[in-house]
Each structure stands twice: as structure tokens, then as C-alpha cells.
Write a protein that binds this DNA or RNA. Structure first.
Ligand code: FES
Ligand code: FES
Lengths: 166, 166
DNA sequence: AGATACCCGAGTAATCCGGTCAACTTTACG
DNA sequence: CGTAAAGTTGACCGGATTACTCGGGTATCT
């Protein structure tokens, strides 16, 4: 799971596709115009989305792209995964089950990052394309397990500025 | 909030600092040796951590660094924030309250990414340094709100391979 | 045929990032 | 006082990655 801006664009494009879903194929040019993205870039993106089985393509005049599954059945995590392949991590080799670092057993922080990745995946797969276009994204609802240490009061408010990529 | 490997190193170093906390300052050289990180790089990192008020420094011989707060009172989110400053996002300008894109109101995906950022922050601030060194990180416990759409069975298992950075 | 649109792979310019270096300051100790 | 042990600063580098483009190809409709 990687979070590049490519992934953001893909989700934007898919959302656009979902909103203009009327049985008839939608051309990339339309999406490019509406979302103000470059056509060439979209082609690249939709190549992956198609190979990932998320959209179907229709060639020739009158062609374009169609959602392969309904927007309620397409999870955001699917999109991100399709467009930004895993590209396995730096130090921690997920291949070998045991430790990543040098030869010792997993470093202390391993579990932390693993769990974080898990949380992110869980969240992204809990949201469907339909949720997004219907603006039905839970507004800071889903709390995560343990509350923060009762200290440094009132600092867990709306920290929404996540820099996914530059 | 940005998730680079710099942040990972910072957390590693802080965890090391927390485990070797005995009232006496710990030198960066020690940390560098134990965690197999470069001294120069650690200097850079700890400069930020100090400015962020997470550690105190003692200069001169016998000097080194000390945790400013107890390990139970230091949240992981604090570390990440200190070391990897926000670096505001691409399209979505967090400065202006309304829309990010061109001039229209916020694009459909805005809320999604905002909420994702929020979730990440929530998670990271629910874990303290102490939790990490005590290996007390919840193993895929904290589920997030809505379950994924009941479909495409059994695909929400342990997807822990988050590629934070190359 | 010709136009429309997808398809694909190579190429590129810029950015970013992890990491280094050198010079300076502060302080302990003898 | 002098020296050495540390922290402090800021500039710098090379490689990797990203975002994005281009040009040519292929299917298909009219
Ligand atoms: S990150 Fe996996 S063992 Fe260190
Ligand atoms: S990401 Fe904020 S409005 Fe598009």
C-alpha cells in the first residue's frame, strides 16, 4: 500500500466515472476536462485500473470506460492497490517472516508500522466509491481503540493535514 | 503529517532513548551504534526533536540527550510531527478553509483524504513511546467503524505492507 | 476509409530524500 | 587554561522516484 498523488488522481477519476455512470462509456477526454488532469496521464492510470479489473474499456468511436463493478462494490483500497503497486518496504523485508533488520529479531518499531499500515488499509477498504460520490465519508467518527494518554489536553482534534505526497 | 522513513528513524531513536533512560544523558553515538544509523543523520533528527520540545540536550563531555517527557507521555504522533513538518499538500490548500482545487468547492475526494489523515493521526497519537518499547502495540485490534462492503470475501486480512517510503 | 478512442512503452524534467561534511559552540575535566 | 567530548548549524550531494509527456499502434464505429 502506497499513498502517492497518483493514487489520489486515480480515485478522483474513478469518482468522476462513477458520477457520470449512465450505461454509456465515458471517454478519458471527458474525465480529463472535468478533473483538469492530462489525458496522457489518465491513459497510464486507466491502463492499470483496467488490468486490475476495476474498469472495462470499449474501443473505437463511442468508446470509453465503464465501471466493472458497481460503485458500491468498489473499495477505495482496490483503486489505490491497483494503481500503486505494493513496492515492498525499505528495511523491513516482508518476505521473510522473521526480523527485517540485519539479523536480529524485528526491531521495536516493526509492530507499530505494521499496525499502522493495517489501519490505513482497513480504513480505505471500509469506504466505497459510492460513499465518496455521495459525500458519505464519516466525519471523524471511527475512533481507534485506545484513547490517547490523558495528558496534553485537547490536542486530538481535527488534524487532517496529511501530506500523502509532495 | 508526513510518513517518511525519516519519521521511522526518529521513532527508532526515541525508542532506543526510552529504553536506555537512566537519568544520565545518552549520546547520539551510542544510539547510532545500537540502531545502526549514521551519527550525522541523527544529529539532524535530534535537532528537530529538541526544537519540538521532545528531548532535552546536555552539552559538553558526559552530555547527550534526555527524554523531555516520560515515555508514557510521549506520543508517536508528536515525534512524527516534530521530525517531518507538515509540508502542506499538493492541490488541496489547507490554508484556505474552502475548496482547494481551482476555484470550485472542494473536490469529492477531499473529505476522504482529510478523514484518512485524521485516522492516521488518531492512531499514532493513541500509541505512546512506552507502548512501543513494551511491545504493547495492539495487534490488528482496533477496527474502524463501518465494515467493508460484504463482498469479495476474505480480502480484509492482514494487509500490513504499507510502503511509507521507497 | 477515416475518425475516434483506447493501448502501450519509452523518455524526461523535476523533485525529493536519505545521508554527508565541515565548521562552530558549549562544557567537563585535569 | 587547554583540550577533548559532546551538541548545533547549515550547506551540500547523488541517486532514486515521481509525475507527466510523446509518439506510434490497434481496435471499431460510421
Ligand atoms: S521494521 Fe520490521 S523489523 Fe524493523
Ligand atoms: S483535495 Fe481538497 S478540495 Fe480537492
Amino acid at each position: 500500500m502506497k499513498l502517492s498523488s497518483k493514487a489520489r488522481y486515480a480515485v478522483m477519476a474513478m469518482a468522476d466515472l462513477a458520477t457520470h455512470d449512465s450505461g454509456r462509456p465515458v471517454t478519458l477526454q471527458d474525465i480529463a476536462d472535468r478533473q483538469e488532469l492530462s489525458l496522457s496521464y489518465l491513459e497510464q492510470l486507466f491502463g492499470r485500473l483496467r488490468r486490475g479489473g476495476l474498469v472495462n474499456s470499449v474501443r473505437g468511436p463511442g468508446g470509453g470506460y465503464l465501471l466493472a463493478r458497481s460503485s458500491g462494490e468498489t473499495r477505495i483500497s482496490d483503486i489505490v492497490l491497483a494503481v500503486d503497486e505494493p513496492l515492498r518496504a525499505t528495511r523491513c523485508m516482508p518476505g521473510s517472516p522473521q526480523g527485517c533488520r540485519t539479523d536480529k529479531k524485528r526491531c521495536l518499531t516493526h509492530d507499530l508500522w505494521a499496525e499502522l499500515g493495517n489501519q490505513i488499509y482497513l480504513f480505505l477498504s471500509s469506504v466505497t466509491l459510492d460513499d465518496v460520490v455521495a459525500r458519505r465519508v464519516l466525519g471523524s467518527s471511527g475512533l481507534i481503540s485506545a484513547p490517547p494518554p490523558a495528558e496534553s489536553a485537547g490536542s486530538v482534534e481535527d488534524r487532517s493535514d496529511l501530506a500523502l505526497r509532495h
